[in-house]
Design a protein around this nucleic acid. Sequence first.
DNA 1: TGCTAAATCTCGAAC
DNA 2: GTTCGAGGTTTAGCA
Lengths: 260, 260
Amino acid sequence: MRAVERPSVSEALNLVQEGLRQGRVVLLVGRCSVDYVGRASSRLGLGDRVVIYKPDGSILVHRPEGYEPVNWMPAGSYLTASSSEGRLNLRAVRRRPFEELKVSFMELYLAAAGRLIDEEELMLHASEEEMRRAVRLKPCLVEPGLKLHDEERHLQLAGGEGSADLVGEDAEGNLAVLELKRRRVDEEAVVQLKRYVDSLKARTPRRVRGILVAPSITRRALRLAQAFNLSFRRLDPKECSRVLREAEVEAKPLEAYEQP
Amino acid sequence: MRAVERPSVSEALNLVQEGLRQGRVVLLVGRCSVDYVGRASSRLGLGDRVVIYKPDGSILVHRPEGYEPVNWMPAGSYLTASSSEGRLNLRAVRRRPFEELKVSFMELYLAAAGRLIDEEELMLHASEEEMRRAVRLKPCLVEPGLKLHDEERHLQLAGGEGSADLVGEDAEGNLAVLELKRRRVDEEAVVQLKRYVDSLKARTPRRVRGILVAPSITRRALRLAQAFNLSFRRLDPKECSRVLREAEVEAKPLEAYEQP
DNA sequence: TGCTAAATCTCGAAC
DNA sequence: GTTCGAGGTTTAGCA
């Protein structure tokens, strides 16, 4: 990492251009204006900001407040740097959709660049995918006596009309179609499940139940679900995460036993 | 802005703690691990990252690739810094929802902090609000002969059952309810407009038309709209932006005339 | 490529 | 406070 405090325009330009060639992450802090044209367009007058440029072509402009960047370009953008009239100018463009971001520094407080190595993979828990795995492992999380079909059979039943998250049979032998949501169920999810239940009903003489599984549901969605004769079952993704962790520790000794 | 290359843990700790007290933006670059627990939970092993801490309590952890931060906390979080066993440890927490982010630096490449001032306001164009203003200015953007009611009358008609973007009358004197979307219309928008049209029909003997106004529409949403007897009119937010700019240059002389 | 659904979505306004 | 809808949403998964 090389850093220069209060760099001149030419020092900063050298650092940026060399950084671009060498695949370094570049940090610039200073007083600048920012213009964006693309899916929308924006203009931001002079102020102090932090600019991060990454070697994959993404660029971020952060103001001193707020979690979100005020302007940005996604990975794959093409960056150029130049100077004119005592200013350092950055320009990032991409095609499809065409977008252009320009940053013009009047004054620089810091310029830094360095090659950063990060090979680690993020482990994320309590996602919707984890809910699916937990319910598959313990269908009783949804209701007692529920049995789930395996993925292949589910896909056979799916057809073209959208798709449900899980399919199985309830304690009374009715077909049960599950729609899992990590967050509150809204009307869109209800409509989606209804469509799938209907397409299944058209292809089987059996009774088909639709069950929404989520930590909560909006009032409107609940009314709609009742009108469509769909059930709602409360299930917290955190509980699913816990169930999976417990299942893991139970499974580990077995695996160890099977190894030799 | 004060910057230290390859700072010791105590140097970095001083810089962070003083930065927190003084309301500075703090930048740290180094090899660290990151743990998050809250709405979900995640773990990220050792790697090189850029951490930005802002005086409003937001914190961002950026890997050398990708537009999005790998971990973050929103504004309002409470940050503390400490050192143990040669590591610099940052901890950010917030309540409601409870969330906690921990960053532990094994090695630091750069630490910097400075008070950044940014008073400018972002000017964003081609938003949905701009579409609304453009259609209000020139209803013929939607269809010839369309006339729009003013906002108050619209609110009277709205009632509790959701709300439409604009209400007026078409060339044949039917009530026309507009739903504007900056982006592609999806099924949710169709359902929303249908609900509003229905609630309006229940309160008037007149014919009521629902019109979706957006740059495009999904196939499913179009089918649903046809089933509900709702129209779709293509309108690009960019064109709205252009219309408003043209209207501005026409209006300016008038305003100047009215000033004295 | 286009479309759909998920996100630690964030953010802001209405209720 | 909660709920609801918009966003330059972004991003990942499929057809």
